[in-house]
Structure formats: C-alpha cells, structure tokens
Simulated scan of single mutants.
Amino acid sequence: MTVNISLREVRKNKGKTAQEMATELGYKSKVSYYNIENDEVEVTLSMAEKISKVLNEPIEKLFPKFFRQEVQENRTLIF
C-alpha cells in the first residue's frame, strides 16, 4: 500500500481537518480517515476519486499508484 505522502500536506494546505475530511467522505470518525493518511488501509479507486473531489486536486497527484504505466517490450525473434 502506498499513499502519496503529500495527502496530509494537501489536506492541511486546503485548511481541512481530518474530522472535516471524514465527515465529507461519510465516515463516522476521523480515525477512519487517518487510517488512509497513515497507509493503514488499502484505498480503492472510488475512495481516491472522492478524496480528490473533496480536496479539489487531481486524482493522479494524490494517488499516482492508480496511474502507473508499465511498459513491456514484446520482441519477436526471427531466425
């Protein structure tokens, strides 16, 4: 699990508390949101989308793991 380390920084820069984030995301307590920031739980794509909307930041910036592209070269050997 790898959450972009800037998630907490972005939240703080936006002037949002963990409790505000938890409320806007539908959690009953801020602990559930802290678990995301502390990489204690796996973040789903749908939750990443919600967080990016609440923080008004591109999802690619906050959760680059969903957008990594691994390129594989396929080579054909001709004999």
Rank of each mutant, 00 (worst) to 15 (best):
F79L: 09
S32P: 13
L55K: 10
E60M: 07
E49A: 15
E20N: 11
F63D: 04
K65R: 15
M21Q: 01
V10P: 02
V31M: 07
I36V: 11
E24W: 06
V10D: 08
E24H: 11
F63E: 04
V3I: 02
Y33E: 11
K53D: 06
R68E: 14
V54E: 09
N56Q: 12
Y33C: 04
K61R: 13
K28Y: 03
K28I: 09
E42T: 10
E40T: 12
R8E: 02
S46M: 12
F63G: 00
I51R: 02
R11D: 01
E20K: 13
E40M: 12
L77Q: 05
N56M: 10
A48I: 04
S29A: 08
G15K: 04
E57V: 05
T44Y: 08
K16R: 14
N35F: 09
V10Y: 02
Q19A: 10
M47Q: 11
R8I: 07
K28L: 02
E73Y: 15
F63T: 06
V43H: 00
G15F: 01
T44S: 15
E24R: 10
V10F: 11
L77K: 08
N4D: 01
N38D: 13
N4F: 00
E42D: 11
N4V: 03
K50I: 09
V71R: 07
P58I: 12
L55E: 01
N13A: 08
F66I: 08
E70P: 03
T44M: 08
Q72E: 14
E42Q: 15
N56W: 05
E49M: 12
S6F: 10
K30H: 12
L62F: 00
K50W: 04
S6T: 06
Q19C: 00
I36S: 05
T44C: 13
E37R: 07
S52Q: 06
E37Y: 10
I78V: 15
R8K: 15
T44F: 07
Q69E: 15
L7H: 07
E20G: 14
K14V: 01
V41Y: 07
E57F: 07
K12I: 10
F79K: 12
V41C: 05
V10A: 01
E49H: 15
M47R: 06
N35H: 15
E60C: 13
E70Q: 11
E9L: 03
K14L: 00
V54W: 05
L7S: 00
Q72V: 15
S29P: 05
L45H: 04
Y27S: 06
R68K: 13
K30T: 12
Y27P: 04
A18K: 06
N38K: 09
S32E: 07
Q72I: 15
V31F: 14
N56Y: 05
V43F: 07
I5C: 04
F63R: 04
E70M: 00
G26R: 02
M1T: 03
G15D: 00
L55A: 08
T23H: 11
K30A: 14
S46I: 13
A22T: 00
K50L: 04
F67D: 11
S29H: 10
N13I: 04
Q69D: 11
V3A: 01
E37L: 08
L62V: 05
K61T: 06
V10M: 06
L7E: 02
I51A: 04
N38L: 09
S46G: 08
L77F: 14
Y34I: 06
E37F: 03
M21S: 03
A48Q: 02
E49G: 14
E9P: 02
